[in-house]
Design a protein around this nucleic acid. Sequence first.
DNA 1: CCTCCTAGATAGTGATACTAAGTAGTGAAT
DNA 2: ATTCACTACTTAGTATCACTATCTAGGAGG
Lengths: 113, 113
Amino acid sequence: MQGLTELLKGSLEGIVLQHISCGETYGYEITHYLIDLGFEDIVEGTVYTVLLRLEKKGLLTVERRPSDLGPQRKFYQLNDAGADYLATFWKKWAFLVDKMAILEGEQKNDNSK
Amino acid sequence: MQGLTELLKGSLEGIVLQHISCGETYGYEITHYLIDLGFEDIVEGTVYTVLLRLEKKGLLTVERRPSDLGPQRKFYQLNDAGADYLATFWKKWAFLVDKMAILEGEQKNDNSK
DNA sequence: CCTCCTAGATAGTGATACTAAGTAGTGAAT
DNA sequence: ATTCACTACTTAGTATCACTATCTAGGAGG
């Protein structure tokens, strides 16, 4: 799916947080997970900037450990603040999904006189 | 609901288009419709900028007509391009909702050894 | 005259995803 | 040995978008 850029604003952060909440992981893995999920146009740069932002917000714990395949990996885990933030995110998302469903269900009222 | 700003990026455009598709309307009415829907923090300035953007994209037909209550109203209707654009928007939205549901369903896999 | 409601426009700001380019480690192919 | 491919992270710059704040303006009521 293409042209999701604007819709992803705000959601991508939650998407990344949610994936990290499933277990410790790192940027490169997250990127390929998202591509496999169907977000084909996501590139590494995008994911890394999200991760750095989440880290600056104090939502993640970070640990660098060597990889057996390449450079060091930067492993992330959710901390308590991250879990709270993620819970709030899902509430907002549920609100939006609910309102969008209401809107989508509304039919065209014929204004022809 | 507060703090929806980032999540609304990309969706607000579709929300406004969808409402217009239900019948000819104008900015002030749209604003109050959205507030009533639950988007309490939406203000007029935001809606007008969305409308001007949609107009520049060639998705709306515009007609100014006097109001019996105040200044002239600027009435909007979807044109064919707008209808196409809206259909594409709903496909993108459905894609995102689907992926988010998959993500939300994934449980924490316990990494404790 | 003043206030409130109706109705629209716009310059400036901040947040975000994306573009594009770079650095670096490892291993396989040539 | 050199090149290529894959792994892994960083960052400067850009475009888009919602929001802030302020402005103009018409009409109704006090």
